[in-house]
Design a protein around this nucleic acid. Structure first.
Length: 455
RNA sequence: GCCUGCAUAGCUCAGUUGGUUAGAGCAACGGACUGUUAAUCCGUGUGUCCCUGGUUCGAGUCCAGGUGCGGGCGCCA
């Protein structure tokens, strides 16, 4: 019986430099295998790296196990780490003992040793993590999540676990899923799944100064696009004693550092995206974050759009709103990189965004910003918050809401309030941008979209 | 929610103006061969042509409805 410490050596660790001749125990799943008269090869993956490890079988081992070492089989192999005569790897495992831990019949295993469409793999959400693409996607998702926390923690931000269940039924960010448990209602009032932790986290910013949330968020919108999901993960920092410029500076530093650190951690995965998913994406993303992000006011952006000779599907200019086609033009063609659009008309934005002191071209604006990136469009929405109670009340009423319903949010404006702000960033949209993946359903482990919650 | 496209073998697809036994590549399986690398070569099998109804001598093909999936737009992250 093996000792607990001998459970396995991750393939990533082996490839990073195990000693020649060292005894190893490698566990994983068969990626491919080739059998011939003299020597046979089995390639294993275990999720620790995009690379496989090659295992060498002698004639007797091949004869004994060849029918059980097809794609998908779970195996544990003890053997020796030794230099490889083959051209594609420096070292390999010479098999000693071979254990078939879990058989897998290739004739009806849904994952094939060939290219398979992402659409088809969505119907195999339980098995697609074993494919190259999803191995890379979810390693990158993990690395990005880690660097998101690291970015904030290194700067003294406190992670606040804002509630999933909320009674704020008008957070202004979309349709909500209602919780129907209990009759009378379990919580004594109507409750919903959160669409944003922002209102809740603002309170903590007025106590801990720099805070953030990072967790699942829910929208009951009937959206059918590659960029929308009913359940997604959002990062929402909130900072006190801060204005819109501080929020933008934070957002820019955040996107840049998280992106570069994630790519540095997952070089092999990004090489895969670059070669198989979106040619050129790696250099384009790195290039984008090595320069200052552009910045333009909403009114300036409209002037740019009006000056372009183009048949817009939607109108541009004063009184219009930025549509997807306009956002993509600004990020992809005009600025050719990430761009912050600021100071949107007040009637286009949520009630909690701070009203600017002066009108622009006769239009009331708010200290809000969206970060637009090529291919994706908006990945960040943020603002300075309205800290003046009388203005906030006017804005709440202007949105057809009742100030009384926001009594605790309003309280913050009465007791030692500060100028403050923050932003929300969709994790999946950041991942789409970094990796070149095209559909949000392919960067969520088990995507929830209208009509789809099978897994 | 609006608009639009698609549905044929395990997967990706072709299938002509409606015509008789519906095809290819890959995968799988069998064999040969090879320190192989998405190996290569030879061979083998594979179908509720999404469902229901209609038109027709005859429907994978045309029509209607339904179902499923994708894409564009809106909402937003």
């Amino acid at each position: 019986m093996r000792a607990g410490t001998d459970r396995r050596t991750p393939i990533r660790t082996l490839l990073a430099g195990a000693a020649d001749g060292a005894p190893v125990r490698v566990t994983g799943w068969v990626k491919t295998s080739r059998f011939s008269k003299n020597v046979s090869f089995v390639h294993l993956f275990d999720g620790s790296t995009p690379q496989t490890v090659q295992v060498i079988l002698d004639v007797d081992q091949a004869e004994a196990f060849k029918t059980r070492l097809g794609i998908g089989a779970a195996v544990a192999i003890t053997g020796t780490w030794k230099a490889s005569p083959g051209g594609h790897q420096a070292f390999e495992v010479a098999a000693g003992a071979i254990e078939i831990v879990g058989d897998c019949d290739p004739s009806d295993y849904p994952i094939q040793r060939k290219a398979t469409s992402l659409e088809h793999l969505r119907t195999l959400a339980h098995l697609r993590p074993r494919t190259n693409t999803f191995q890379s996607v979810f390693r990158v998702r993990n690395a990005a999540s880690w660097h998101i926390h690291r970015f904030f923690q290194e700067r003294g931000f406190m992670w606040v676990h804002t509630p999933i269940i909320t009674a704020s039924d008008a957070e202004g960010a979309g349709e909500m899923f209602e919780i129907v448990a209990g009759d009378p209602p379990f919580f004594g009032k109507r409750t919903f799944l959160t669409v944003s932790g922002q209102l809740a986290v603002e309170n903590f910013a007025q106590a801990f100064t720099d805070v953030y949330t990072f967790g699942p968020t829910f929208r009951a919108e009937n959206s059918h696009t590659p960029r929308h999901a009913a359940e997604f993960w959002m990062i929402e920092p909130e900072i006190a004693f801060a204005n819109l410029d501080d929020v933008i500076a934070l957002a820019e530093a955040f996107v840049k550092e998280v992106t570069l650190a994630t790519i540095a951690d997952c070089e092999g995965d990004f090489d895969f995206f670059d070669q198989r998913i979106e040619p050129g994406v790696k250099a384009a993303v790195i290039g984008a974050v090595e320069q200052p992000f552009h910045r333009v006011t909403w009114h300036e952006a409209q002037k740019i759009l009006v000056g372009v000779q183009r048949d817009w599907e939607y109108p541009v200019g004063p009184g219009t709103s930025l549509q997807s086609e306009h956002e993509r033009f600004l990020a992809e063609e005009y600025f050719k990189g990430p761009v912050f659009v600021t100071n949107y008309p007040a009637d286009q934005k949520a009630f909690y965004m701070r009203l600017d002191d002066a009108l622009t071209d006769g239009v009331a604006t708010v200290s809000a910003t969206d970060l637009l990136v090529p291919r994706i469009g908006e990945i960040i929405g943020g603002s300075q918050r309205e800290e003046r109670l009388d203005v906030l009340d006017d804005r709440i009423r202007a949105h057809g809401l009742e100030p009384e319903g926001y009594w605790w949010y309003r309280d913050l404006r009465r007791y030692g309030t500060t100028p403050h702000g923050g932003f929300g960033l969709g994790l999946e949209r950041l991942l789409l941008w970094m990796t070149g993946m095209k559909n949000i359903r392919d960067v969520l482990p088990y995507p929830r979209t209208p009509g789809n919650a099978e897994f």
